[in-house]
Amino acid sequence: EPSQADLDALLSAVRDNRLSIEQAVTLLTPSSGGGSGGGSMDAKEILTRFKDGGLDRAAAQALLAGRTPA
């Protein structure tokens, strides 16, 4: 399960175009075949909204942490 520091680094990389959204989703869902963790939004949607400015960093982190299976 990614830590808050991992999520923060991942969000920074996506925002700075050092990591594509697809690459980030793969890192967030290493063994689930890329499927959502059952959250209301999947990781790709969360990351896309964050990059487009629709979500701030704290909200994106909380959503990603919340949808990651324990």
Results as ranks from 00 to 15, higher is better:
residue 41 M to N: 05
residue 60 A to K: 00
residue 27 L to M: 15
residue 13 A to P: 00
residue 67 R to M: 13
residue 66 G to N: 11
residue 54 G to P: 02
residue 28 L to T: 02
residue 67 R to I: 12
residue 4 Q to Y: 14
residue 3 S to D: 09
residue 50 F to S: 00
residue 23 Q to P: 01
residue 61 Q to C: 13
residue 65 A to F: 08
residue 61 Q to H: 13
residue 35 G to F: 11
residue 41 M to A: 07
residue 9 A to T: 09
residue 36 S to W: 13
residue 7 L to E: 02
residue 42 D to V: 05
residue 21 I to K: 01
residue 36 S to A: 11
residue 29 T to I: 09
residue 50 F to A: 01
residue 21 I to L: 05
residue 62 A to K: 08
residue 28 L to P: 00
residue 30 P to C: 10
residue 63 L to M: 09
residue 56 D to Q: 04
residue 61 Q to V: 10
residue 70 A to T: 11
residue 40 S to M: 12
residue 70 A to L: 04
residue 10 L to M: 08
residue 53 G to K: 03
residue 26 T to S: 11
residue 55 L to S: 01
residue 24 A to D: 00
residue 1 E to Y: 15
residue 46 I to L: 03
residue 43 A to C: 11
residue 56 D to H: 04
residue 43 A to N: 05
residue 29 T to R: 07
residue 8 D to L: 05
residue 57 R to V: 08
residue 6 D to C: 13
residue 52 D to I: 04
residue 60 A to F: 02
residue 27 L to P: 01
residue 21 I to C: 02
residue 46 I to S: 01
residue 27 L to S: 04
residue 18 R to K: 13
residue 22 E to N: 07
residue 37 G to C: 13
residue 27 L to H: 05
residue 69 P to R: 01
residue 6 D to Q: 15
residue 19 L to W: 04
residue 51 K to F: 07
residue 56 D to S: 11
residue 3 S to A: 08
residue 48 T to N: 07
residue 16 D to K: 03
residue 28 L to Q: 00
residue 15 R to G: 08
residue 17 N to S: 09
residue 8 D to N: 07
residue 31 S to F: 07
residue 15 R to H: 07
residue 32 S to M: 12
residue 59 A to N: 07
residue 68 T to D: 03
residue 47 L to Q: 00
residue 33 G to T: 10
residue 15 R to P: 00
residue 22 E to V: 08
residue 31 S to Y: 13
residue 66 G to C: 09
residue 45 E to I: 05
residue 14 V to P: 00
residue 61 Q to D: 03
residue 69 P to G: 11
residue 11 L to M: 04
residue 40 S to T: 15
residue 12 S to T: 11
residue 55 L to N: 01
residue 6 D to F: 15
residue 35 G to A: 15
residue 28 L to N: 01
residue 52 D to W: 06
residue 27 L to W: 05
residue 63 L to G: 04
residue 33 G to C: 14
residue 50 F to P: 00
residue 18 R to I: 12
residue 27 L to F: 13
residue 9 A to G: 06
residue 67 R to L: 12
residue 68 T to V: 14
residue 39 G to I: 13
residue 23 Q to A: 13
residue 52 D to V: 06
residue 17 N to I: 02
residue 2 P to I: 15
residue 47 L to W: 01
residue 22 E to Q: 09
residue 70 A to N: 09
residue 63 L to F: 05
residue 33 G to Q: 15
residue 1 E to D: 14
residue 14 V to R: 00
residue 7 L to M: 07
residue 50 F to L: 02
residue 40 S to E: 13
residue 34 G to R: 03
residue 34 G to T: 12
residue 34 G to N: 10
residue 57 R to H: 09
residue 19 L to K: 02
residue 2 P to G: 10
residue 22 E to A: 07
residue 33 G to S: 13
residue 12 S to Q: 10
residue 27 L to N: 04
residue 58 A to L: 13
residue 10 L to H: 01
residue 19 L to G: 00
residue 22 E to F: 04
residue 4 Q to T: 15
residue 43 A to G: 05
residue 35 G to W: 07
residue 42 D to H: 05
residue 9 A to R: 09
residue 46 I to R: 00
residue 9 A to D: 12
residue 13 A to Q: 06
residue 62 A to G: 05
residue 4 Q to L: 15
residue 51 K to W: 04
residue 47 L to V: 01
residue 25 V to E: 03
residue 42 D to Y: 08
residue 13 A to T: 01
residue 30 P to T: 12
residue 27 L to E: 04
residue 30 P to S: 14
residue 43 A to E: 07
residue 57 R to W: 14
residue 27 L to Y: 10
residue 8 D to I: 05
residue 52 D to F: 06
residue 35 G to I: 12
residue 41 M to T: 09
residue 8 D to C: 07
residue 15 R to I: 14
residue 46 I to Q: 00
residue 24 A to R: 00
residue 6 D to V: 12
residue 60 A to C: 05
residue 60 A to N: 00
residue 16 D to L: 05
residue 54 G to H: 13
residue 21 I to Y: 01
residue 44 K to R: 10
residue 29 T to E: 13
residue 8 D to F: 08
residue 47 L to P: 00
residue 70 A to M: 07
residue 4 Q to R: 10
residue 66 G to R: 05
residue 4 Q to S: 11
residue 64 L to N: 01
residue 68 T to I: 11
residue 64 L to T: 01
residue 37 G to D: 13
residue 1 E to M: 13
residue 38 G to I: 14
residue 53 G to Y: 04
residue 34 G to K: 05
residue 18 R to D: 07
residue 59 A to Q: 14
residue 21 I to N: 01
residue 67 R to S: 06
residue 24 A to Q: 00
residue 36 S to P: 11
residue 20 S to W: 03
residue 43 A to W: 07
residue 62 A to S: 10
residue 41 M to C: 05
residue 1 E to S: 13
residue 43 A to V: 15
residue 24 A to G: 03
residue 68 T to C: 11
residue 48 T to W: 04
residue 30 P to E: 11
residue 17 N to F: 04
residue 48 T to G: 06
residue 1 E to W: 15
residue 13 A to F: 06
residue 61 Q to P: 00
residue 44 K to G: 05
residue 1 E to V: 08
residue 2 P to N: 14
residue 51 K to P: 01
residue 57 R to A: 12
residue 14 V to D: 00
residue 6 D to G: 09
residue 18 R to E: 07
residue 29 T to W: 13
residue 53 G to C: 05
residue 16 D to Y: 04
residue 43 A to I: 14
residue 46 I to H: 01
residue 25 V to L: 13
residue 18 R to Y: 08
residue 51 K to H: 05
residue 40 S to N: 12
residue 34 G to E: 15
residue 56 D to E: 10
residue 23 Q to C: 09
residue 23 Q to W: 06
residue 54 G to Q: 15
residue 13 A to C: 06
residue 58 A to Q: 13
residue 53 G to A: 03
residue 44 K to W: 14
residue 10 L to F: 04
residue 20 S to C: 03
residue 14 V to Y: 02
residue 29 T to D: 15
residue 47 L to M: 03
residue 59 A to F: 05
residue 26 T to L: 14
residue 28 L to R: 01
residue 48 T to Q: 12
residue 26 T to A: 15
residue 17 N to Y: 03
residue 38 G to E: 13
residue 45 E to R: 03
residue 32 S to Q: 14
residue 19 L to Y: 05
residue 22 E to S: 07
residue 54 G to K: 15
residue 55 L to E: 01
residue 25 V to C: 06
residue 56 D to V: 02
residue 36 S to K: 05
residue 14 V to F: 03
residue 16 D to V: 03
residue 38 G to T: 07
residue 33 G to P: 12
residue 55 L to K: 01
residue 20 S to D: 05
residue 58 A to M: 13
residue 56 D to A: 05
residue 42 D to S: 07
residue 46 I to C: 02
residue 41 M to I: 11
residue 49 R to Q: 15
residue 24 A to C: 06
residue 33 G to Y: 08
residue 55 L to C: 02
residue 36 S to V: 11
residue 67 R to N: 10
residue 20 S to V: 02
residue 18 R to P: 00
residue 32 S to V: 06
residue 19 L to R: 01
residue 49 R to W: 06
residue 34 G to W: 11
residue 40 S to C: 10
residue 1 E to N: 13
residue 64 L to C: 01
residue 15 R to Y: 14
residue 69 P to Y: 03
residue 59 A to W: 04
residue 58 A to D: 11
residue 24 A to S: 02
residue 28 L to F: 05
residue 17 N to T: 04
residue 42 D to C: 09
residue 4 Q to M: 14
residue 68 T to K: 12
residue 29 T to N: 11
residue 26 T to Q: 13
residue 67 R to E: 08
residue 63 L to Q: 03
residue 40 S to F: 11
residue 2 P to L: 13
residue 50 F to M: 02
residue 3 S to H: 14
residue 2 P to F: 14
residue 33 G to N: 12
residue 59 A to D: 09
residue 59 A to M: 08
residue 50 F to K: 00
residue 15 R to F: 10
residue 42 D to Q: 07
residue 62 A to C: 09
residue 15 R to V: 09
residue 5 A to Y: 15
residue 39 G to P: 12
residue 23 Q to L: 10
residue 40 S to K: 04
residue 66 G to P: 06
residue 6 D to P: 06
residue 44 K to H: 12
residue 63 L to N: 02
residue 36 S to C: 12
residue 17 N to W: 04
residue 52 D to S: 11
residue 20 S to P: 04
residue 30 P to R: 09
residue 25 V to T: 05
residue 65 A to T: 12
residue 33 G to E: 08
residue 63 L to V: 03
residue 25 V to F: 07
residue 60 A to P: 00
residue 23 Q to H: 10
residue 22 E to Y: 04
residue 15 R to T: 06
residue 32 S to E: 12
residue 21 I to D: 00
residue 63 L to H: 03
residue 3 S to Q: 11
residue 27 L to Q: 05
residue 40 S to D: 10
residue 7 L to T: 04
residue 48 T to S: 08
residue 40 S to P: 11
residue 56 D to I: 03
residue 63 L to Y: 07
residue 1 E to C: 08
residue 64 L to G: 00
residue 62 A to Y: 07
residue 14 V to T: 01
residue 47 L to D: 01
residue 69 P to F: 06
residue 5 A to F: 15
residue 12 S to E: 13
residue 41 M to G: 08
residue 19 L to D: 01
residue 28 L to E: 01
residue 61 Q to I: 15
residue 26 T to I: 13
residue 53 G to E: 03
residue 34 G to V: 13
residue 1 E to R: 10
residue 22 E to I: 05
residue 15 R to A: 13
residue 49 R to E: 07
residue 32 S to K: 04
residue 54 G to R: 15
residue 6 D to K: 10
residue 34 G to D: 12
residue 48 T to R: 07
residue 42 D to R: 08
residue 30 P to H: 07
residue 23 Q to V: 07
residue 61 Q to T: 13
residue 1 E to F: 14
residue 15 R to D: 04
residue 48 T to H: 05
residue 53 G to P: 01
residue 14 V to S: 00
residue 52 D to C: 09
residue 67 R to T: 10
residue 31 S to D: 12
residue 11 L to Q: 00
residue 7 L to I: 10
residue 51 K to N: 03
residue 69 P to S: 08
residue 39 G to S: 11
residue 5 A to P: 14
residue 25 V to N: 03
residue 8 D to A: 06
residue 67 R to A: 12
residue 57 R to K: 15
residue 62 A to W: 03
residue 49 R to F: 08
residue 30 P to Q: 10
residue 14 V to E: 00
residue 16 D to H: 10
residue 7 L to P: 02
residue 21 I to P: 03
residue 34 G to A: 10
residue 1 E to H: 11
residue 24 A to F: 03
residue 33 G to A: 09
residue 15 R to L: 15
residue 31 S to P: 09
residue 38 G to C: 14
residue 53 G to L: 03
residue 22 E to T: 06
residue 43 A to F: 14
residue 52 D to Y: 08
residue 54 G to S: 15
residue 1 E to I: 13
residue 8 D to S: 07
residue 21 I to F: 02
residue 37 G to S: 08
residue 27 L to D: 02
residue 66 G to A: 11
residue 63 L to S: 03
residue 70 A to V: 13
residue 37 G to Y: 14
residue 44 K to C: 06
residue 67 R to W: 15
residue 44 K to L: 09
residue 41 M to F: 11
residue 26 T to R: 10
residue 18 R to H: 11
residue 5 A to M: 15
residue 14 V to M: 02
residue 65 A to S: 14
residue 58 A to H: 08
residue 19 L to E: 01
residue 26 T to W: 09
residue 48 T to L: 07
residue 69 P to M: 06
residue 67 R to Y: 15
residue 47 L to F: 10
residue 65 A to V: 11
residue 18 R to W: 07
residue 51 K to I: 07
residue 55 L to A: 01
residue 29 T to Q: 11
residue 12 S to G: 06
residue 18 R to V: 13
residue 14 V to W: 02
residue 9 A to H: 08
residue 60 A to H: 00
residue 64 L to W: 02
residue 40 S to H: 11
residue 70 A to D: 12
residue 27 L to G: 02
